[in-house]
């Protein structure tokens, strides 16, 4: 029985991307407050266009994703973060 598994010969072995276990960095490091005055930290949650990254990419939990999005919007209001940009920050 075991033989027929190896019967399928792929030209190039399919690289199944090992899915890195996503974790919520706030729970892990115990940060409770997202500071809107610290643009460097908030930039990790933005993509190149300055848009807020979805939870499925960053893996943060709901509670902290909301805090991050509120903090990002405050930082944008204070012109610390751009609303939209094209260059890689």
């Amino acid at each position: 029985m075991a033989t027929n598994q190896s019967e399928i010969r792929y030209l190039t072995p399919p690289t199944i991307e090992v899915q890195k276990k996503k974790f919520c960095r706030f729970l892990k490091s115990g940060i409770k407050y997202v500071d809107y005055k610290d643009p460097e930290f908030l930039k990790r949650f933005l993509n190149e266009q300055g848009k807020i990254l979805p939870r499925r990419i960053t893996g943060t939990s709901v509670k902290y994703q909301r805090k991050v999005s509120v903090a990002i919007k405050k930082a944008r209001h204070l012109a610390m973060l751009p609303y939209v940009t094209d260059l890689m920050k």
Binding site: K20, R25, D35
Partner: peptide, 25 residues
């Protein structure tokens, strides 16, 4: 938590977690 954060920030540098790579993998 904001008050706690401010006090901690004033007393010593808040340890920014640098163990992770940029999140947008």
């Amino acid at each position: 938590y904001a008050v706690e954060w401010a006090v901690k920030k004033r007393s010593g540098k808040k340890p920014v977690i640098a163990d992770d790579e940029p999140v947008n993998v």
